[in-house]
Deep mutational scan, measured.
Amino acid sequence: MGFKLLSKLLVYLTASIMAIASPLAFSVDSSGEYPTVSEIPVGEVRLYQIADGVWSHIATQSFDGAVYPSNGLIVRDGDELLLIDTAWGAKNTAALLAEIEKQIGLPVTRAVSTHFHDDRVGGVDVLRAAGVATYASPSTRRLAEVEGNEIPTHSLEGLSSSGDAVRFGPVELFYPGAAHSTDNLIVYVPSASVLYGGCAIYELSRTSAGNVADADLAEWPTSIERIQQHYPEAQFVIPGHGLPGGLDLLKHTTNVVKAHTNRSVVE
């Protein structure tokens, strides 16, 4: 069995187990497998329904001669939608809004960016022009300005110390501490036991640490421990890039980060 097929099978099995364990909360999309990078042309966006009122959005972007996937989250909030992270750029984010209108038909009224990198804030200006209120932590807003990236308009308070959590509509926002970046936030959907790890969490097929220019490698494993301790009931975990899975993604990420750190020390 090929690795790609095995990865998709694991996603399907995880979703099936969740649907059985929580039949009222989960209505997993039966329309197909989780979209992969090879299936999404740059400039297009796919939506994948995880649970009743919960979707991931998947886009792709060219970077350094390669094409990478990027995940975000959409959560229903009454007759409105909360968006977590842009679709990595203005063109993708405009396509995301169009796809949401086509498939869901509810307005996106608020959006949260989970850290300051372009795959999370690139497209904020498109959201703002569409009347979406954009939010991020003060740290993310400051770092985005320093980096020359787009800056969300509103500040999220109460997320300055490791372990801080605040309720934001249908989700809980959690600051686990520094990891992929010093400002990275985690998003949890309690009604569906869905954990969105953003770039602080890796997919299972990833074996290298990737972009760690703004990471705190020493603190990252401790931050992941905080996530595990705060959300032990999480059933569906979405990484910032690639295929979702279960809580095993947290341990896998820790292993990859520690291996990278150990290699760096040896070198």
Results as ranks from 00 to 15, higher is better:
1 M>P: 03
2 G>I: 06
5 L>V: 07
6 L>C: 11
6 L>I: 06
6 L>M: 06
8 K>V: 09
8 K>H: 13
10 L>W: 12
10 L>H: 07
10 L>A: 08
12 Y>S: 13
12 Y>F: 06
12 Y>G: 11
13 L>Y: 05
13 L>E: 13
14 T>K: 14
16 S>H: 05
18 M>G: 05
19 A>L: 11
21 A>L: 11
21 A>D: 09
21 A>S: 09
22 S>F: 06
25 A>E: 07
26 F>I: 09
26 F>E: 08
26 F>M: 06
27 S>D: 08
31 S>C: 11
32 G>A: 07
34 Y>V: 10
34 Y>T: 14
35 P>N: 06
36 T>Y: 09
37 V>F: 08
37 V>E: 08
38 S>A: 11
38 S>D: 06
38 S>F: 14
39 E>D: 07
40 I>N: 10
41 P>C: 14
41 P>H: 08
42 V>L: 11
42 V>R: 12
42 V>P: 11
47 L>A: 04
47 L>D: 02
48 Y>A: 11
49 Q>T: 12
50 I>D: 02
50 I>P: 04
51 A>L: 14
51 A>K: 06
51 A>C: 09
51 A>H: 06
52 D>R: 08
53 G>D: 13
55 W>Y: 13
56 S>W: 08
57 H>K: 00
57 H>F: 04
57 H>G: 02
58 I>K: 06
59 A>D: 06
61 Q>N: 11
62 S>I: 15
62 S>G: 10
63 F>R: 10
63 F>M: 07
65 G>S: 08
66 A>Q: 13
67 V>K: 13
67 V>F: 09
70 S>P: 03
70 S>G: 05
71 N>Q: 07
71 N>D: 03
72 G>K: 01
73 L>F: 03
75 V>T: 09
76 R>M: 09
76 R>A: 13
77 D>L: 04
80 E>I: 15
81 L>H: 02
81 L>R: 02
81 L>I: 14
83 L>F: 03
84 I>P: 01
84 I>F: 14
84 I>W: 00
85 D>L: 00
85 D>F: 00
88 W>M: 02
88 W>K: 00
90 A>T: 11
92 N>F: 02
95 A>I: 07
97 L>W: 03
99 E>Y: 05
100 I>H: 00
101 E>N: 07
101 E>C: 13
102 K>G: 12
102 K>D: 15
103 Q>W: 09
103 Q>I: 09
104 I>K: 00
105 G>D: 13
107 P>H: 09
109 T>Q: 14
110 R>N: 14
110 R>T: 09
111 A>H: 14
112 V>F: 08
112 V>K: 03
113 S>M: 10
114 T>A: 02
114 T>N: 00
117 H>K: 02
118 D>A: 12
119 D>W: 00
119 D>H: 01
120 R>V: 03
120 R>D: 04
121 V>R: 03
121 V>Y: 02
124 V>A: 08
125 D>L: 14
125 D>I: 11
126 V>G: 07
127 L>K: 02
128 R>P: 03
129 A>H: 15
129 A>C: 04
129 A>L: 14
130 A>V: 10
132 V>M: 04
133 A>M: 15
134 T>Q: 01
134 T>V: 12
135 Y>K: 00
137 S>M: 13
138 P>V: 13
138 P>S: 14
138 P>D: 13
139 S>D: 12
140 T>Q: 03
140 T>L: 03
142 R>A: 14
143 L>E: 07
143 L>N: 13
144 A>P: 04
144 A>S: 11
144 A>H: 04
149 N>D: 10
150 E>K: 07
150 E>S: 10
150 E>V: 08
151 I>M: 14
152 P>A: 14
152 P>M: 01
153 T>R: 13
153 T>I: 09
154 H>Q: 15
154 H>W: 14
155 S>K: 10
156 L>N: 02
157 E>R: 14
157 E>V: 15
157 E>N: 15
158 G>F: 15
158 G>P: 06
158 G>H: 15
159 L>N: 00
160 S>M: 11
160 S>P: 11
161 S>L: 14
161 S>R: 13
164 D>Y: 09
164 D>P: 06
164 D>C: 04
165 A>F: 15
166 V>T: 10
166 V>K: 11
167 R>V: 06
169 G>N: 04
170 P>S: 09
170 P>W: 04
170 P>A: 07
170 P>Q: 09
171 V>G: 02
172 E>I: 08
172 E>W: 06
173 L>A: 04
173 L>S: 00
173 L>M: 06
173 L>C: 03
175 Y>L: 04
176 P>L: 02
177 G>N: 00
178 A>K: 13
179 A>D: 03
179 A>Q: 00
180 H>S: 00
181 S>P: 02
181 S>I: 00
181 S>H: 00
182 T>S: 08
184 N>F: 01
184 N>P: 01
185 L>V: 07
187 V>E: 02
187 V>A: 08
187 V>C: 02
191 S>D: 08
191 S>E: 07
193 S>A: 10
193 S>P: 03
194 V>H: 01
194 V>M: 06
195 L>S: 00
195 L>E: 00
195 L>V: 07
195 L>Q: 01
197 G>F: 02
197 G>Y: 00
198 G>L: 02
198 G>K: 01
201 I>L: 10
201 I>F: 15
202 Y>H: 05
202 Y>D: 04
203 E>P: 13
203 E>L: 01
203 E>V: 04
206 R>W: 08
209 A>C: 15
210 G>H: 14
210 G>T: 10
210 G>L: 14
210 G>Q: 11
211 N>W: 13
211 N>M: 15
212 V>K: 10
213 A>P: 12
216 D>C: 05
216 D>F: 06
216 D>W: 11
217 L>I: 15
217 L>D: 06
217 L>P: 06
218 A>L: 15
219 E>R: 10
222 T>W: 14
223 S>Y: 02
224 I>D: 01
224 I>M: 12
225 E>G: 11
226 R>S: 13
228 Q>I: 05
228 Q>G: 13
229 Q>G: 10
229 Q>M: 13
230 H>P: 04
230 H>F: 15
231 Y>N: 04
232 P>Y: 09
234 A>N: 03
234 A>I: 09
234 A>V: 08
234 A>L: 15
235 Q>Y: 14
235 Q>M: 06
238 I>K: 02
238 I>G: 01
238 I>S: 01
240 G>W: 03
240 G>R: 03
240 G>F: 03
240 G>I: 04
241 H>G: 00
243 L>C: 06
244 P>W: 06
245 G>V: 02
246 G>A: 08
247 L>P: 05
248 D>V: 09
248 D>F: 06
249 L>V: 05
249 L>F: 03
252 H>K: 04
256 V>N: 05
257 V>C: 06
257 V>P: 01
257 V>M: 15
257 V>E: 02
257 V>Q: 03
258 K>D: 08
258 K>E: 14
258 K>I: 14
259 A>Y: 06
259 A>G: 10
260 H>A: 08
260 H>C: 08
261 T>N: 14
262 N>S: 11
265 V>C: 08
265 V>H: 08
266 V>H: 14
267 E>C: 04
267 E>I: 06
